[in-house]
Design a protein around this nucleic acid. Structure first.
Lengths: 128, 128
DNA sequence: AGCGTATTGCGAGAGGACTCTCAAATGCAA
DNA sequence: TTGCATTTGAGAGTCCTCTCGCAATACGCT
């Protein structure tokens, strides 16, 4: 028989998952740390990185690359959608659906595989 | 009278400008170094950064933030357009025009200022 | 409850992008 | 051609993000 490495549930990992569930928006490792520290105050950034890594491996989280910023992570399995970034506080939010219908016209010889769309502006908290 | 600091034309700066003009696509500092070294072989990366910095100040170059990659720079003054990145070689290319007509629908309280659109795929060199 | 091992916390370390320091080189005005 | 301030090259240094090493902790199977 194969001896598989067993994984454990820890308060830290629970707190990190809860942070993503509650935030309901893509989080940077730093944001996840801050949010999860409300539950586990000695939580360290290394643990956040380790758990984000394993949650990505488990396909529970998906990386979101943002132009000019560190990678965010969001809960996997959502429908195709794009993101909004606040110019003021830098938070990233999910937008519903995708309005891009046609494949963009590319130069001769180029092949399309996917696209990303980012909207910038002011989020509701910063607009007040 | 005000004593203004005068700037000089150097072989290095000329080579860097020429690299951008000839490449005809957004370049990273590293790419600009490699291309400009064809003309000035002892060119150093520090000089590339310094000149890119001053060309941005002069508004001759404009930064292009790419998701998950270091900033590219492109020659200023072009019409609103978006970018293509090759999944294989990582080069960034300019696309003509902008197909996004309507302002995207945002959640309540969010304000729109701008958008960015990135297309991914395979460039003509890599598709061969 | 006891035990073995996965997991954590912390500090050190690695890697990338970019900046600084300073002596040497070089535009360029006179 | 001379003089001198700007610019360069090279390496060290900074900043940031992320990873590693290791002793201490704490899951969770039995």
């Amino acid at each position: 028989m194969t001896t598989s490495i067993q994984t454990r549930n820890t308060r830290q990992k629970d707190a990190i998952r809860a942070a993503f569930l509650e935030a309901n928006r893509p989080l940077s490792p730093d944001e996840a740390l801050t949010l999860a520290q409300k539950e586990v105050d000695a939580l360290s950034i290394a643990t956040v990185y380790r758990n984000i890594g394993s949650l990505v491996e488990d396909k529970w989280l998906t990386p979101v690359d943002v132009p000019g910023n560190s990678t965010r992570y969001e809960i996997s399995g959502k429908a195709h959608h794009h993101h909004f970034q606040c110019n003021s506080c830098g938070t990233v939010h999910e937008l519903e659906g995708c309005e891009i219908q046609a494949k963009p016209k590319l130069p001769r010889g180029f092949k399309y595989t996917s696209h990303e769309f980012f909207v910038y502006g002011t989020c509701s908290s910063c607009a007040k």
